Simulated assay, not measured.
Amino acid sequence: MTQSKVWLVTGASKGLGLATVRHALALGFRVAATSRDAVRLKAEVGVADYVFLPLEVTLTDEASIALAVRQTKERFGSIDVLVNNAGYAVLGAMEEMSDADVRKNFDINVFGVMNMMRGVLPVMREQGRGHIINIASISGSLGMASTAIWRDRRTVN
């Protein structure tokens, strides 16, 4: 059974992103998925082109995102669900992290999410429908680390 819904999933080459792509395809949805390596992604997913579109996208490049959105709409006719999954953690002691490392992390985890939403929202508005799911598992662990630090300071005082 093929559903009419089209999903666009970022960070689909492994982990939760790849599992999301596989699950959506198993449910009969058509899926466009982003990765830094579309050839590897296509091999990993291994399904027919009429239901799956692997896209090589740089989330910090709005032109790259615009191309991916355009290719998805041309192939499938719509974008009904955006799953912002791409992201990574910078782990280490605060004094060990450089500004460049942290800014690069924010470029993907924060601005990449915003760039994808800016790219997809006009399509969803034109259609009169759509859903955006932002996965932020990394933020949860960072929040817990911050809380632990705050607790330690509170107990010391």
Rank of each mutant, 00 (worst) to 15 (best):
M1G: 15
M1N: 15
T2N: 13
T2I: 13
Q3D: 14
Q3V: 10
S4K: 08
V6M: 12
W7F: 15
T10Y: 08
G11R: 14
A12V: 07
G15R: 09
L16A: 11
G17T: 07
G17F: 11
G17N: 07
L18C: 01
L18D: 05
A19N: 03
V21E: 06
V21Q: 04
H23S: 09
A26G: 15
L27E: 09
L27K: 08
G28H: 03
R30W: 05
A33W: 00
A33D: 00
T34E: 10
T34I: 08
R40F: 13
K42D: 13
A43G: 09
V45N: 01
V47P: 03
V47Y: 04
D49N: 05
D49K: 05
D49Y: 02
Y50W: 11
Y50V: 11
F52G: 01
P54L: 10
P54G: 10
L55I: 04
L55G: 07
E56Q: 01
V57L: 06
T58S: 15
T58G: 10
T58H: 15
T58P: 04
L59I: 03
E62H: 00
E62P: 01
E62V: 00
A63L: 00
S64K: 00
I65W: 05
I65C: 07
I65Y: 05
I65H: 06
I65P: 05
L67P: 00
L67M: 07
V69R: 03
R70Q: 10
Q71T: 13
Q71G: 10
E74M: 09
R75E: 02
R75N: 01
R75W: 02
G77H: 11
S78T: 12
V81D: 01
L82Y: 02
L82G: 01
N84G: 09
N85G: 11
G87P: 11
L91Q: 06
G92P: 04
G92V: 03
A93P: 11
M94F: 15
E95G: 01
S98R: 06
D99L: 11
A100Q: 13
A100G: 08
A100I: 10
D101M: 15
V102R: 08
R103Q: 15
N105E: 11
I108R: 09
I108D: 08
N109A: 02
V110N: 15
F111K: 03
F111C: 00
F111W: 10
G112D: 04
V113S: 07
M116H: 06
M116I: 02
R118E: 07
R118P: 08
G119Q: 06
L121G: 12
V123I: 15
V123K: 04
M124H: 00
M124R: 00
G128T: 06
G128A: 04
G130L: 01
H131V: 11
I132G: 10
I132S: 12
N134R: 04
I135Y: 07
I135R: 07
I135G: 08
A136H: 10
S137N: 05
I138H: 09
S139G: 15
G140K: 07
A145K: 13
T147I: 14
I149D: 09
W150R: 13
D152Q: 06
D152G: 09
D152W: 02
T155M: 05
V156Q: 14
V156W: 10
V156N: 10
N157K: 13
